[in-house]
Design a protein around this nucleic acid. Structure first.
Length: 881
RNA sequence: GCCUGGGUGGCGGAACAGGUAGACGCAAGGGACUUAAAAUCCCUUAUGGCUUAGUCCAUGUACGGGUUCAAUUCCCGUCCCAGGUACCA
């Protein structure tokens, strides 16, 4: 605090709370107070233990949605909790500000992407502030600012120099009409999502990051990420897709070259009867050239280029192919194998060539049957004899080798090793490891992104921009073009430059970077966001990193998280940071869902388009009955959205936060419920009234230490300590805020019962008031991370100065949890038959005795022989008869 | 197809290490307060049964088996739902 009393918040301890809970007033007052007193500002302090809490930063689309509210509420609770636990907590926020929607919006509204983006950021920042999140706003970053992407360009150059960034030709989804590259998810059934015209596979020179160099390391560390959900590490492992096998070279007939394949089943090489190449494979055209097949092959390649990857991958896609006219030779047995090109062979996996073993691979089997190709059995299963003429499906299991020359009789698993060894000796192949993971293509033919800082020079080739020229600014005066084509290649003022090598005129690279690049290091930048002469302040980044707890949607399980892990390794190797894994613990929160409502005439309806009339729900546009559909993730297209602003206006931030936390545990989907929000609001009101009633009575007393308790409040004292324990565990170990809140609700119910059962506040004994005070202060502290404004106000009401956030989290006294008497339940043959209470220190035989004497129990054991009696300490007795 | 999750009252969800199934909240019904309504407070609420309406009995955590004194929890099999992934050679 800066010494001066803040205007609207009275700092006096005698400040009286208002009769009525008015969230809007207290929330704006406390937000202003926090800001004025710099409460959330942090700096490195080596004497204190740090805690870096991060939520995935949002794309500035214009409005916060409920998914954000949930994500950031969860994060804020943890941040505030850790802070009360004494940690030096870094909790920053910023904007993932480059990307396509800004360009689309700019075209649609005739604004500039920068203008649109910055306006959105302002709007969303205001919303986040209204929710009372404890961000250190001084660290805010927007990735579209030159101060940010300058360092991304700098890093790109470092990576280029180290060979980690390179350029190569690859296939992309290309829309001719829009003159642009489309991401896979922008291709709908083979058509451009924007103009509806067919999408082609086009070869383009593109920039790549060599993430595959780290495939093994990224995979190996998956098992060490103990704080990550297994679901996510499993998805990453599958994505990396390591498989062991062999690389085999099949010489091409009459040519001095070979087709190299990757296979995991080198044991079946003697059964390889034909070869399948991806349509994009360079040999396909070469082999068919001058043969009768030439026209058919060309036609097939054309047709395949038209179908994008996702539609090629649709279910039950018919396997088809065309003979290329060429042959290759099986290096192990000299078999002449026809070379086909087939739609199921993928250029981007392995070598783009498949040795086809129809007897032992289902896909090859179907292909062979369709085109009447040879089927050779080389692995015989243990209990049956395979006959190639009558087989109805491939046999992919293990067995004994046949038709395989010197390897006949071996078990196929042994043969794998033996054949690999033999191939290596002959120089026709070797054991190898293959990954599904591809290098990361980062080129985008887009305007609204970070320019790739490279220069094309006629004489020197491709050279990095000079460090002194950074940042390579994205020109602001660009005119956005209908259709999405990047204006950069036609902006002469941008393109023309001089070569940093020879000084002669040269041209700038016009590709911009994939926006996943920005989000792969923003968490490092938060550590020293204003540093202008370096990417990061090494000391700061080594103090704060790695992120202790990262929170976000599971939809980023693969790309964002994998790229961030990769970048951390790169930065580590370049000596810029010490850590190797960026996120120690990861929480993936569930989606926010709501029922969909549709009208037969008008389709999906927004909640405000629905009229409630008695039991009926009607469409406001036409008055017809609406139909209620499935509960689905809130989305604009389904119109099942709730605008957080409406909630903030109606209930305030604390109720909104409380509902998000209470309705479901964080990792599960949350189903929206208007009544649930009401319920949360009612709870806060109930607490408010309780505090109002007791405010005077507890003002002068100190919280009870548990000594000399009147019997009517003994239970409440114990409950208070029990609640601290429960809430602490729920937050600390599981982030189960829903059960934490339930526990506080129970405590509040307990406090209410004091008034009904024991004493009205005005004639409560001093001891009773002392226990009440303890319970009240505990309630405030336990609730403060979740409903911070509300808690601040009540903290004042219990006679304290300053912010409750600056106090420490309450401890519980294990001794206070002990009860004099405990409840024992009695079972007969495992069925509940009775219960009794007994002194907590009673020994087991006494407990057993009591159980056997119980009237209720006796009814069930009378006349039967007791076989066994099991006594579980402090819990139950089970009598087996 | 494969890989993850998940299936518990009218609903959201609890039961953390096999030990009282249904915490807490919502909704519903009844009652109190009020001229009235809202708000608030109290009571009831898994299903079925009843000779003793009870500290009662039976059934019950998707379904079928199993292990155990005891299973929502562990094991085997089946069904359904959600998410991810997919011709990966």
């Amino acid at each position: 605090m800066k010494g001066q009393a803040f205007r609207t918040i009275s700092l006096e301890a005698t400040h009286r709370m208002k009769e009525k809970y008015d969230p809007r007033t207290i929330e704006t007052e406390w937000q202003a107070f926090w800001e004025k007193t710099d409460l959330f500002k942090v700096s490195e302090d080596p004497s204190r233990e740090k805690y870096y809490l991060l939520e995935m930063f949002p794309y500035p689309s214009g409005k916060i949605h409920m998914g954000h509210v949930r994500n950031y509420t969860i994060g804020d609770v943890v941040a505030r909790y850790k802070r009360m636990r004494g940690f030096n907590v870094l909790h920053p926020m910023g904007w993932d500000a480059f990307g396509m929607p800004a360009e689309n919006a700019a075209i649609a509204n005739n604004t500039h992407p920068a203008q649109w983006t910055y306006d959105n950021i302002d709007a969303m920042r205001t919303q986040l502030k209204r929710l009372g999140f404890s961000y250190d706003w001084d660290r805010e970053i927007a990735t579209c600012r030159p101060e940010y992407y300058r360092w991304e360009q700098w890093l790109f150059i470092k990576m280029y120099e180290k060979g980690m960034a390179y350029r190569k030709e690859s296939f992309v989804n290309w829309c001719e009409t829009c003159q642009t590259v489309l991401a896979n998810e922008q291709v709908e059934a083979g058509m451009c999502w924007r103009c509806g015209k067919p999408v082609r596979q086009k070869k383009l020179r593109q920039w790549f990051f060599r993430i595959t160099d780290y495939a093994e390391d990224l995979l190996a560390y998956c098992d060490r990420l103990e704080g990550w959900p297994e679901k996510v590490t499993t998805m990453q492992k599958n994505w990396i897709g390591r498989s062991t096998g062999a690389e085999i070279h099949f010489p091409v007939e009459n040519r001095d070259e070979a087709i190299t394949v990757f296979t995991t089943r080198q044991d079946t090489v003697f059964g390889a009867a034909f070869m399948c190449l991806a349509p994009e494979h360079p040999l396909v055209t070469t082999l068919s050239h001058g043969t009768q097949q030439e026209a058919a092959v060309a036609d097939f390649i054309d047709r395949m280029a038209l179908s994008d990857r996702s539609s090629r991958a649709v279910e039950e896609y018919e396997k088809e192919g065309v003979f290329t006219g060429g042959y290759c030779i099986n290096p192990m047995n000299g078999r002449r194998m026809p070379v086909y090109t087939a739609n199921f062979a993928l250029m981007e996996y392995g070598t783009g060539a498949v040795m086809s073993v129809p007897a032992h691979d289902q896909r090859d089997f179907e292909f062979a049957r369709k085109y009447h190709l040879e089927i050779v059995v080389v692995v015989q299963p243990p209990n049956e004899e395979l006959d190639p003429t009558t087989m109805t499906e491939a046999y992919a299991g293990d067995g004994t080798m046949v038709n395989s020359g010197a390897f006949n009789g071996l078990h196929n698993r042994e043969a794998m090793e033996a054949i690999a060894g033999r191939m290596e000796k002959k120089g026709v192949g070797k054991k190898t490891v293959n990954y599904r993971l591809r290098d990361w293509g980062i080129s985008r033919q887009r305007y609204w992104g970070a320019p790739i800082p490279m220069v094309h020079c006629k004489d020197c080739g491709i050279v990095p921009a000079a460090e002194a020229d950074l940042p390579i600014l994205l020109p602001e005066d660009a005119e956005l073009l209908e259709g999405g084509k990047s204006p950069l290649p036609s902006l002469e003022a941008f393109i023309q430059t001089t070569c940093p090598g020879c000084g002669r005129p040269a041209r700038r690279e016009t590709d911009t970077m994939d926006t996943f690049v920005e989000s792969s290091w923003y968490f490092d930048r938060y550590c020293s966001p204003r540093r202008h002469d370096a990417m990061f302040d090494k000391e700061a980044v080594d103090y704060w990193m790695p992120v202790d707890q990262y929170i976000g949607g599971v939809e980023h399980a693969i790309l964002h998280l994998l790229y961030s892990r990769y970048f951390t390794r790169v930065l580590n190797e370049l000596g810029l940071i010490d850590c190797k894994e960026p996120f120690t613990r990861l929480l993936t929160q569930g989606m926010v869902c709501k029922e969909t409502v549709a009208c037969p005439a008008h389709g999906f309806l927004f909640p405000e388009e629905i009229q409630e009339s008695g039991e009926d729900r009607l469409c406001r546009k036409c008055g017809d009955q609406v139909t209620v559909g499935r509960v689905e993730k809130m989305s604009k297209s389904k119109k099942n959205v709730i605008d957080p602003n409406v909630l903030l206006d109606r209930y305030g931030a604390d109720t909104t936060r409380l509902f998000c936390l209470f309705a479901a545990p964080p990792e599960r989907d949350l189903e929206w419920s208007e009544q649930g929000v009401e319920g949360g609001h009612r709870f806060l009101n109930r607490v408010w009234r309780l505090f109002n009633a007791w405010e005077e009575a507890v003002r002068e007393v100190s919280p009870s230490d548990g000594k000399g308790l009147p019997s009517e409040v003994k239970g409440l004292y114990r409950k208070t300590h029990g609640t601290i324990k429960k809430v602490t565990n729920d937050i600390e170990e599981r982030f189960h805020f829903n059960t934490a809140i339930s526990a506080v609700m129970e405590l509040v119910n307990g406090m209410n019962a004091v008034e009904t059962n024991a004493a009205a506040p005005e004639n409560a004994s001093r001891e009773t008031a002392a226990v009440m005070k303890l319970a009240m202060e505990t309630t405030v502290k336990l609730l403060s991370p979740m409903v911070p404004h509300f808690a601040e106000e009540l903290w004042r009401a219990t006679g304290h100065e300053g912010s409750v956030l600056l106090t420490s989290w309450p401890d519980y006294d294990e001794a206070a949890l002990k009860t004099d008497e405990i409840l024992i339940v009695v079972q007969v043959n495992g069925k509940l038959r009775g219960r009794f209470t007994i002194d907590a220190d009673a020994d087991q035989s006494a407990v057993k005795q009591r159980a056997l004497e119980d009237d209720q129990v006796w009814k069930f054991i009378d006349g039967k022989a007791i076989k066994k009696v099991i006594v579980v300490k402090n819990k139950l007795v089970n009598i087996v008869v």
